[in-house]
Amino acid sequence: MKASLLTTAVVGSYSVPAWLERAKNDFLARRLTRHDLDEIHDTVVKAAIKDQEAAGVDVLTDGELRRDNMVDYFAERLPGVEVYHASKKSAYDFYESVVRSRLATASLGLVGDFRFLRRFTDRVPKVSITGPHTLVKRMRNGYYPNEEAFAMDLARVMNGELRELAKAGATELQIDEPYYSGFPEDLPWAIRALNVLVEGVGARVGLHVCYGNRYGKPSWEGTYRYLFPAVLEARVQQLTLEFARRGEDDVALFGEFAAPFTLGLGIIDVKTHEVETAEVVAERIRQAIKLVPADRVSVNPDCGLMHLPRDVAFAKLVAMVEGTAIVRRELGG
């Protein structure tokens, strides 16, 4: 059995406790200082790392616990984006934001987050980044002639950050693009922007596409068939998709189109509190590797775990790891 066979990973976010949500909201209401919130973030990130390690996950993240949501963390750091800080009272809501001039190149602060993560784990650290298509859909465009031009320039700016991450030692990066599923007609230019984003980045890059996890519910429904063949042009090494909630029919698309990247197989449903058993996880993997060779599959939840209670999120990760171990043993035996 190869050491890397059926690597287990998280997609990105980890459970956000209610008290952390309140702390974030208190910060927005100016009842908590930035310094105190940063200290809280440092502490919860360490706890999230420990949970992922204890569950036995191979590739882990900082749980994205410093982020309010998948957009604002980037919107606030991109020079040229105006963020209206009075526009939200709840951390999870999106800020109203608008770009009014050409985006300038600047650090987005992800290297610091990565270094913090690496300091507290000896597992493989991963950093996830919201992709340009999704950001373009959430930030108002007051400068560029169209969404594609906006996305291309975003990709140019963020590419610098990805290169810096790789220089800092990041070997696993992930681009999150859930809005592909809502706007499949954008796919040709969205993939072009993605390729600008990852150009020259010396790390393994995965692309995560789901059907949305906003407020712990899907934003769209359909089939991943819309991704093909356009997604085959993406210069990424892995495509990470959700299957636990939706069923595994679309796994066959990987074989049908001879996908040139590995499959991040979503086998944990993040939209229900019901914890999968290890055997259920194992069976989902068994079905998938009938269609995609096991050495081209890694295992992960459908999406981030932020909307699940901590005990449920942890139990699901444990089930994922134990279920994967069952199949690894079968393959090794």
Partner: peptide
Amino acid sequence: TLPLLHPR
């Protein structure tokens, strides 16, 4: 009831 709703 809300979780029964289709995304649209």
